[in-house]
Design a protein around this nucleic acid. Structure first.
Length: 354
DNA sequence: AATCCACTGGAAATCATGGCGC
DNA sequence: GCGCCATGATTTCCAGTGGATT
């Protein structure tokens, strides 16, 4: 049934794009100066999750490299690489200049190396730049004439608010490409395109693709997740095509899968906090600390917990209601992000702690 | 109105880890 | 193998904030 599972992964870069031609054109126009050895302005891609920003950036750069193979591309995800050091390091890694860099390497050595790696342009894709904690890294990149940044973020205002003045003024110019949510029909077309390559013919009907697209409400990542999960379910049951029941089972599954993945990424102490909050529904900080302390062998300090909590707020797992005194913590309400959904998909996070 | 108190989050100190040169 | 030393994680310390209490 599944011919090529990779095509359904969210990080797959298709060989042709569906419904994003305008965006591709805008971005490649912005990067065009690279073909004449000139430096383009920085490019920005803005839009909510699951609208193909990362995908389009990778696709466009792959195209560009076909025309101009000397251009090198470094992809950096700022969720993981959120310090100046790490950003510079992963760029060096991408252009093969990272050998024998170790932690004791002086700070500016990385920058020097990068500035010496000027035998050709480097396009740096900074995904989720709003997660970057040291925006001085952006200033560094701007100082290097052979480096062209492509910045990906959710919202323009929030991104610029996090910049310091130096960076803000440097990046004020630049091409902005905005991505809107996919409509149901558009998303269905994308899913159809992918399933042609990933699945045997006739495995999934157009009507089912529309159902998936509708349930995913414009988020391609969720849509692909549902399709993948449904296909796997059907395959496990030895069926030749996706049935309605397999599809229905896959919908709540995929909707929570992304969250579950982040919950699993938490370390033990963070998960205890998450569970306590989940069980209480809503809890005050003082009580939260008390319950936590009783529940683990070697409790971390209060201050460390506060670091964990801010991190979890950052990950959109929990939310803090109110400021300072009288603040309470609770889980982010899943149904508020996805409009008009049923109550069935609610999970009890306490039950998936192992 | 003054004081208390719970809470937040910045900064500096300390601990743990692991690669490197010798 | 041993000491050195960055880095990252955690802790310690503390100022700031604003609602609650007297």
């Amino acid at each position: 049934m599944i011919v090529d599972g990779r095509v359904l992964r969210e990080d797959f870069v298709p060989s042709e794009v569906v419904h994003r031609h305008d965006e591709v054109n805008l971005l490649s126009e912005a990067l065009e100066p690279l073909l004449y050895d000139e430096r383009p302005d920085p490019a920005f891609l803005f839009g909510p999750t699951g609208v193909g920003k990362t995908c389009i950036a990778r696709y466009t750069l792959a195209q560009l490299r076909e025309q101009e193979p000397t251009v090198r591309v470094a992809y950096v995800n700022c969720w993981q690489e959120y310090t100046r050091f790490r950003v510079l390091y992963s760029i060096l890694e991408a252009v093969d200049r990272a050998v024998d860099v170790h932690r004791s390497t002086p700070k500016d050595e990385l920058f020097d190396r990068l500035s010496r790696a000027d035998d050709g342009s480097i396009v740096v894709i900074l995904d989720e730049v709003d997660q970057l904690e040291e925006t001085s890294a952006l200033y560094d990149l701007h100082r290097l004439p052979h480096v062209s940044p492509v910045l990906i973020a959710n919202r323009e205002e929030e991104l610029f608010a996090s910049f310091d003045d130096r960076v803000r003024s440097r990046f004020h110019a630049g091409t902005r490409v905005r991505f809107d949510r996919y409509g149901t029909a558009e998303l269905a077309a994308i899913l159809a395109n992918r399933s042609e390559k990933a699945l045997e013919p006739g495995v999934v009907t157009d009507a089912q693709l529309r159902t998936i697209a509708d349930a995913a409400s414009g988020d391609a990542r969720v849509g692909l997740g549902i399709l993948r999960s449904a296909a796997r379910r059907a395959e496990r049951q030895g069926l030749a095509s996706i049935t309605t029941s397999a599809l229905e089972a896959a919908i709540p599954d995929a909707r929570t899968a992304i969250r579950r993945k982040t919950v699993e990424g938490l370390i033990e102490h963070q998960r205890v906090l998450y569970d306590v909050i989940a069980e209480a529904g809503e809890i005050e900080p003082g009580d939260l600390y008390d319950v936590y302390e009783k529940r683990v062998e070697e409790p971390k300090t209060n201050r460390t917990l506060r670091n964990y909590l801010t991190k979890m707020v950052h990950y959109d797992l929990i939310e803090a209601v109110g400021e300072r005194r009288g603040r309470t913590y609770r889980l982010v309400d899943e149904n508020s992000e996805i409009t008009g959904q049923d109550e069935e998909s609610e999970i009890d996070p306490a039950s998936d702690s192992r």
